[in-house]
Amino acid sequence: MFGAGATGARIARMLAASARVGAVEVRDTDETRLREVSGSFDDTVVVGRGPDVPDSADIVVVATAAGTQAAVALSAVRAAAAVVTTSDEITETRDLLALDQQARQHGVPLVVGAGFMPGLTCLLARAGAAELDSVDEIHVAKVGTGGPACARQHHRALSSLAVDWRDGRWTRRPGGSGRELCWFPDPVAGRDCYRGALPDALLLVPAFPGVDRVTARMAATRRDRLTAPLPMMRRPHPEGGVGAVRVELRGRRASGRHVVVLGAQARPAEGAAVVAASTALHLIDHRPAPGAAGLASIPGPDRLLRQVAARRLRPCRFEGFALSRDAAT
């Protein structure tokens, strides 16, 4: 387990609590942070040091700050360990997906972006797609941040170029543009969401061949947008408040067009930890074919989603209503 932040410490505790895990070793470059959280671990968790992955490791979960995960993942792949990463940064997601060939050579799966978003959103997209005959559009959005590293990445993402999939090709749009009012599960409700440097399209497009549009947005306030190009004015909070994700799929079923909206609400660090830990345990039972991909491509998404739900991260469905008597009939 690399990273002992708000997400990493939770993942370590969840893995240690599982009967299927023999031992968990936690590492972090911040020794002070590691000492702080080590008191919350039980006896099955040991504290390790250094960036090298031992050959004895079966699964490596990486929950370090965005931008530092690819190097750890590469070490883990070379050590022939299955890897679960949680990065939500575009360049790093691309780098992790580029490790596909090496993962195949070493015969290990490398899960890219197993967090709240991306991660749970990929699973929800897979779940929603099962209700449609064909998927034309996927739009994901999120509210909230986890620990300080997540807050910094959120801040950077709002001022960086977004990557969308539109009409069969990639398009770049400015971060902070494309305002859309998105409704999330209660108590978050409606939030204005904007484009940002989010990697979801990179993970969803390969998993849904033929999809026309894939976009990702993040909630932001006027102050967030105003200060996005500037350095962060103050240190981020140790952990953000309640957050949420939503996935909207548009496609065809039978003879008509249909929209499926799924979502979930949780503290983002908690949600990411549940997804990452569940994915690691899922890999123990259902080892997928070697390669690098996101959770939308993982075998047995139903079983993984049930594990996630069992850890109190319950997916929700938005059920609309008829706007007119004609539509109701």
Binding site: R126, P206, A289
Partner: peptide, 11 residues
């Protein structure tokens, strides 16, 4: 309801 036949893992 969800379908366990996800696309093959890997790119």
């Amino acid at each position: 309801r969800i379908g366990s036949d996800a696309a093959p893992f890997g790119r």
